[in-house]
Design a protein around this nucleic acid. Structure first.
Lengths: 199, 199
DNA sequence: TTTATAAATGAATATTTATTCATTTATTTG
DNA sequence: CAAATAAATGAATAAATATTCATTTATAAA
């Protein structure tokens, strides 16, 4: 019995399928890029029929966009997990930095997918702008770091970009050379970054 | 009169067209990604007929691969311009770092194209491996920096990746927000990096 | 100027890929 | 269990795209 039963809608959608489709798409994009995926391949990888794909997503463009939206949402959730702007600056910074690293490590496929989408015909400028807006707290944090004389007096965007750029590249390298990322190496990378930005 | 004339080959290829095709492809890939380009669009952008494209490149795959190879070659040429391993460590490091920055700035389209190719059905693992080999001198330089106690005693790849990662992201941001990169901001970024890695 | 030849063209064709749809299957209520 | 309904299927179709090819054009030597 559900909300629809009185008008006799039966056989509800298997909402689990959306996740199957998303996972299949992420795996394929990591393997061969956005340029290399087809709807029928996605269907095969998700273990459903091609037609079923169109019950859940009206077009390839919609599928890519909805997946992008979900990835962005989950990335931002992770970025700011356990972060409070009331924390001391250094604590908040370390918290967010390790969250960024965690996302790249544990959601590598999502990262690759989002990178690929950025230069693609699927994602609009509006969507890209929204992505920028969602990282505003990070921008605020850097401004605060400068105000509290904890950080060098440099352009906020330069500091921000510098802070996060090493993460992306380091995780990418580790994944492709199949090297494990240890707790010690995470700390090393953090210290490289910190020694760069500290006042 | 050229080498072929005695066997009566006439109307030689316009070798300038290869460059037109490459430039058109780079512009299109920057605009809409590898997933968004078609052979006929490339032809239009290069101001030639679709069929002409196939006189110069036997397939789309070949075109992408040859463009990738040329981009890699020109990038490596620039990376090691005016660099001599006989220079003092700090001089060599700064030289290469600024060369990397120059490439990203003045060959932004090429950078975007190469990034996109990395996860694509066009570029083989062999090609990717070759790319890694070509940056060996950079790896050597970092090892030397550690030996001379100029750099922190950390994993060479971590140092290497940290050294270059800021460049990519900073140039990307500057291009998209249409901010000019000043000589001063280049120095700032270099110092952020240097303060991070120095012993 | 003629001739030989390959480049250049772009419409036509082949191929690939997205999308639809007639049919079958599964689910839930009465 | 029957009825009702949407999900699921995958072959068929439509649309997009890569590639070919018959024809025209341009070049350079004779």
């Amino acid at each position: 019995m559900n909300i629809y039963s009185f008008i006799c809608f039966v056989k509800p959608r298997d909402e689990h399928k959306i996740d199957q489709i998303f996972q299949a798409t992420l795996i394929l994009v990591k393997q061969k890029g956005l340029a290399g995926i087809t709807m029928s391949e996605i269907a095969v990888a998700a273990k459903i029929a091609t037609g079923t794909l169109y019950i859940y997503f009206e077009s390839k463009e919609k599928l890519i966009n909805e997946l992008f939206t979900q990835c962005r949402k989950s990335s931002v959730d992770i970025y700011f997990k356990d972060y409070e702007s009331s924390q001391p600056f250094a604590v908040g910074l370390k918290r967010i930095w390790f969250n960024l690293l965690e996302f790249r490590m544990n959601h590598f496929k999502e990262s690759v997918f989002m990178d690929q989408c950025y230069h693609s015909p699927y994602i609009t400028e509006t969507t890209k702008d929204l992505t920028k807006k969602m990282i505003q707290p990070l921008y605020k944090l850097v401004e605060r770091g400068k105000a509290e004389k904890e950080l060098k007096e440099l352009d906020t965007f330069m500091l921000l970009i510098f802070m996060v750029s090493g993460i992306n590249e380091y995780v990418k390298h580790s994944v492709y050379s199949e090297k494990k990322i240890t707790k010690a190496s995470m700390e090393d990378l953090y210290n490289l970054m910190w020694d760069g930005i500290k006042a």
